[in-house]
Amino acid sequence: MLEIGLISTLNGVLFGMLLFLMASGLTVIFSMMGVLNFAHASFYMLGAFFGFEISRHVGFWPGLVIAPVLVGGIGMLVERYGLRTVHKHGHVAELLFTFGLTFIIEELVQMVWGKLAVDYRVPQLLDFPAFTIFSTEYPAFKLFELFISIAIFLALLLVIKRTRVGLVVQASLSHPEMVGMLGHNVDRVFMLVFGVGAGLAAVAGVIAGPALVTQSNMAQSLGPILFVVVVVGGLGSLSGAFVASLLIGLLQTFAVASDASLADVFGELTGNGPLIAYVSDIWNVTVAQLSAVMPYLLLVLILIFRPRGLMGTRET
């Protein structure tokens, strides 16, 4: 019991941090620009493929720096020549714009790298088990993931709360005209923010690419889970997203570990008949089978009982 508890906690924390790594860029863009970026997962995929391509020529580590810079640049171009034009038509137009972008990026990635998975490897330097608990090994690369995730969290928090840049960015969202009057270029601020968000997505891609599967459908398969992280954490709250990632990671991991079903709680169903046969299917479903639904259940509950999320400040 201790064994499964300890290992589940560890697995949950590691998965939660991976989720945060993936969701951090999304939160940044939303909290500072108010744009719900549907193309986030696509930037994440671009990061993974750029990282793969660079790792083939000059190695993983340069890729970890170059790929996010490139994707960040693409993000800025998208903001400057796409999003900014669409912006004046309101949030729905922005949403649809980024939604359309996901399909374009997926198609482009398929054209360049094909539809099959590419062989993106963990760097040699981190390709060893870091420690062993109850005969389960934990690879060093996963700890690296954890470390990067926490570093990004702290760095972002510091920049937003404690620096002038952070102040200007925050002020640009709520009082763009005033910030403009004070001599700051609001448009350029937004462009930079979007670039940073896209770059963060790419960092997640470069790191998750070797750990998971780098394939042209990876943006799709990442799915809506990141939105759950952002909404549960509180729209636009970085600390909220951090806590929500951990919560979802732990929730899902512990759900998988549990084999309890309604039958265990209330006893086996007795009797015959069509109704019993129908209900017995539901009666015997284990918590483990429902693990993938858990985050969405949490999402629904949060929206009902605490619409602004765990740490959000706004109602929307």
Binding site: I4, I7, S8, N11, G12, L14, F15, L18, S135, T136, L212, S221, L222, G223, I225, G249, Q252, T253, F254, V256, A257, A288, Q289, S291, A292, V293
Partner: peptide, 18 residues
């Protein structure tokens, strides 16, 4: 039984098998 094409992290399943 694992949910079809929805799982990103299989380490909890590995822990169970172990």
């Amino acid at each position: 039984f694992v949910p079809l094409q929805k799982v990103t992290d299989f380490s909890p399943y590995i822990a169970k098998i172990k």
